[in-house]
């Protein structure tokens, strides 16, 4: 049923083609840049991470309240699998782009550089993607995007919350507080998001 749920969300367009196109353009631009300068991985990853923050917050509940997921929700698929599938499909394109850029960096530097897979980069991608997904389960993509814009553009907030500051940071440079912050920001929204999908009601917008 997990595969069915994944297929359903892909067909239902949880990640619109426009965003997938955005990732393709970002990876293509990264390929050009890394070919010329293999040390530019962090610069190449920045647009992918920014795009991922908006794409991963695909929003479950508002779309479900329009009835778009009725067929899946009444298919007998366990709700936790539906939540997992929605998370995987929402995060998939961004994660795939990140891995592609990491492989391009390794290839361009003949295996000597891997800032794309440094502990900080992994934490930034995984934690912020899951955070973005979980935070948007109860809201819309637009509301989540406004939240991210505020986080990224208010310097005093960005200094503490922007995942961009973690890109390229190695495990030895990460302080304990940053690790706890990253874990907390990933696990809590994930649990809340899954809980909302598993336990939450799905009234129809038009019937309320």
């Amino acid at each position: 049923m997990l595969l069915y749920a994944i297929r359903y969300f892909i067909i239902a367009g949880v990640v619109p083609p426009l965003f997938v196109g955005g990732f393709i353009v970002a990876v293509a631009a990264a390929a050009v840049r890394l070919t010329a300068n293999p040390e530019a991985a962090i610069d190449a990853l920045t647009p992918v991470l920014l795009l991922q923050l908006f794409v991963a917050g695909s929003g479950f509940r508002i779309v479900a309240r329009r009835g778009h997921f009725d067929l899946l929700l009444t298919s007998g698929a366990p709700r936790w699998q539906i939540a997992l599938a929605h998370c995987l499909v929402s995060l998939g394109p961004g994660m795939a782009s990140w891995v592609c850029i990491g492989l391009l960096e390794l290839a361009a530097s003949h295996g000597s550089l891997s800032a794309s897979f440094a502990a900080g980069t992994c934490a930034a991608f995984v934690a912020s993607s899951i955070f973005a997904w979980g935070a948007a389960v109860y809201s819309s993509r637009t509301a989540a995007a406004i939240g991210w814009l505020l986080v990224m553009t208010i310097p005093s907030v960005a200094r503490f919350l922007s995942p961009l500051r973690l890109l390229g940071v190695t495990a030895g440079s990460l302080d304990t507080f940053a690790v706890i912050e990253v874990l907390w920001s990933a696990v809590l929204p994930l649990v809340v998001g899954v809980w909302c999908i598993v336990r939450g009601a799905t009234p129809l917008e038009a019937a309320q």
């Binding site: 359903y8 329009r66 009725d70 009444t74």
Partner: peptide, 27 residues
């Protein structure tokens, strides 16, 4: 719902407009 087959449809407005009809029909 998890143990028997249930067919539920609330109306055409619940179908996502951006999906191709053949893809939806195969779900």
């Amino acid at each position: 719902v998890s143990r028997m087959n249930v067919g539920y449809f609330a109306g055409d407005f619940t179908l996502p407009g951006s999906v191709r009809a053949c893809d939806w029909g195969s779900l």
